[in-house]
Amino acid sequence: MREDLLDPRAVLLHERAPDREAAIRRCGRALVEVGAVAEPYVAAMLERERSVSTYVGEGVAIPHGTNASKDDILRDALCFIRFPDGVDWDGEQVTVCVGIAAREGGHVPLLAALAEILLDPGRARTLREATEVAQVMKELTL
């Protein structure tokens, strides 16, 4: 995956969230904070989740906005948020959220690249257990 997609400031490894909505809001805020999206994108991420769960398995969710929110994306980017205590995701336990902001169909190759990484048990475990930003940067930008 391209290195410029993941700003180290958007890698947060010791977050807590009381529920799925708060976890998605935290992902959205991380993307806002690094200048990747405008504030309305956060609401679009919540709207997406209400229509289709972004849980993908193995304790990972990949929240992203709706097609209608593309104008709120300033640049393609990812955030990586780790919730060590887990978050209930409609009955599943999520410990990692990878938020995506991508314009013009860019989310499809991003999702494919993330799936490839997350389907590798060793790399997925490294990400779920990461305690250093450098570990995440290495795994997601190989």
Rank of each mutant, 00 (worst) to 15 (best):
R2S: 10
E3F: 03
E3Y: 05
L5F: 04
D7R: 13
R9Y: 04
L12K: 15
L13C: 08
L13K: 04
H14T: 14
A17N: 13
A17M: 08
P18G: 14
P18H: 11
P18C: 06
R20D: 11
A22H: 06
I24L: 01
R26Y: 02
R26V: 03
A30H: 11
V32S: 07
V32M: 09
V34P: 06
V34D: 13
G35S: 10
G35M: 08
A36M: 07
A36C: 05
V37L: 07
V37H: 12
A38P: 10
E39V: 07
P40T: 09
P40S: 12
V42F: 01
A43Q: 13
L46K: 03
E47D: 11
R48W: 04
R50M: 00
R50A: 09
R50D: 00
S51T: 15
S51G: 13
S51K: 14
S51C: 12
V52H: 14
V56F: 03
G57Q: 10
E58D: 14
G59R: 00
G59L: 07
G65I: 02
T66P: 10
N67K: 15
D72Q: 05
I73M: 09
L74C: 05
R75D: 07
D76L: 05
A77H: 02
A77Q: 09
C79F: 03
R82D: 10
R82E: 08
F83H: 15
F83T: 14
P84A: 08
D85H: 07
D85R: 14
D85P: 03
D90L: 05
D90T: 11
D90A: 09
G91R: 13
E92T: 00
E92L: 00
Q93S: 10
V94G: 06
V94P: 09
T95R: 15
C97P: 11
V98T: 15
V98M: 05
V98D: 01
G99R: 07
I100Y: 01
I100F: 04
I100T: 07
R103W: 04
E104Y: 12
H107R: 15
V108N: 15
L110R: 15
A112I: 11
A112L: 08
A112D: 14
I117A: 03
I117H: 12
I117V: 13
I117P: 05
L118A: 10
L118I: 04
D120Q: 12
G122A: 03
R123E: 14
R123H: 06
A124F: 00
R125F: 00
R125L: 00
L127A: 04
R128F: 00
R128C: 02
E129T: 11
E129N: 01
A130C: 02
A130W: 02
T131K: 14
V133M: 01
V133S: 11
A134P: 05
M137D: 08
E139P: 14
L140P: 13
T141L: 06
T141W: 01
